[in-house]
Simulated scan of single mutants.
Amino acid sequence: MQKQNQMDISTIHQKYFRPSCLRALNLRFGGEFYSLFSEKPHDQIHLPPEWFRTPEDTLLNYFSILREAENLGGRSCGTVGQARTPFPIAYNFLSREYQKKLSFDEYFDSFAGIGHTSLIKLFYVPDGKNGLKFFYEMETIEGFKGKRAEYFGYSYGFINLVYEKEGFKISYLSKFEEDFLCAPYHGWDHDGEAVVEVKYGEWCKLIQQIYPTVREGYFKHIYFKGTDGADYWFIYVTLTNGTDVEIAQFRKFINEEWKQINIKPEEECLTRFERVKES
């Protein structure tokens, strides 16, 4: 039995070690495109408005431009991709307000160590407060300065957009690097079902009955009947490293439509749970 359990655990943990096999989404521009902007600083670049026509156009064009951007600090084999040329172009996808907060030099430095970028996930995220919001995940080829070997890195985040006279521009972009060792060795908080049971069940005492998870590709839809009589619906996305990230929460009382909510268990429930546990 012990041997069988070890085999089962090993099989489960493989999802944390395997790289992504998803196709790249950022394939809109070819090599000859970059020659139009060679040697131009960001404030002398003017981009066509059709690149910003829809939020999806803005983001796919933005990541396509960055596909062959390189900030590795030099390689003995010569030029990598389109070298530094894409960065001033991509900087023009940021809104005016975002550029005031993030200088071009700071923007460029944020890509330190990256030699190639593949966008592997991109989708709209419901967000009633912050307007247009998208989730993304990307696969990068990265390297350490002074070392010849490169490696694959994975990161994800959320992007907010605003509409300016040129079209949709990026008003904020977050980035979180994925870890491939903590998930298989530590904790329940990498798994969507476990997160719901612990945070919303044990901490918040909100779960009366939890239903089987509905899976759609890399999405998980987790439903449960609440102790308050309402139905709850949580959406998670599974990253390349196997970790589930919460995307949205919804609640529905009888004869009502689904309404987006924002329960924060760490702030609203954990302290109360710890007090009860200690008493």
Rank of each mutant, 00 (worst) to 15 (best):
R148D: 05
R215G: 12
Y211N: 10
R67E: 07
F224H: 07
N71I: 08
Y223P: 03
S155D: 11
I263H: 13
W51T: 01
D179T: 07
F87W: 10
D231S: 13
Y200D: 05
E202D: 10
T213V: 14
F250T: 08
F144L: 13
E216A: 11
G167S: 03
Y200W: 05
S20R: 02
N130A: 12
D228I: 02
D8Y: 06
F234Y: 09
K15Y: 09
L119H: 12
R272E: 12
A194N: 14
L36S: 12
Y156R: 09
N262H: 14
F134Y: 15
P86V: 01
P126Y: 10
I170M: 06
E202A: 10
Q208D: 15
F152R: 13
T213N: 05
E70W: 08
C182W: 15
R251C: 14
I45P: 00
L25A: 06
G73H: 15
E150I: 15
N241L: 03
P49H: 10
K264F: 04
K145N: 10
N5M: 12
G242R: 06
R67A: 07
Q209K: 15
Y16H: 15
I261A: 07
I170L: 06
K205V: 01
F87L: 09
Y236S: 00
Y200G: 08
E268V: 09
T140A: 06
F123K: 08
Q4K: 11
T243V: 04
Y163M: 14
D231G: 04
I247Y: 08
S118Q: 02
V162P: 07
G115P: 03
K121E: 07
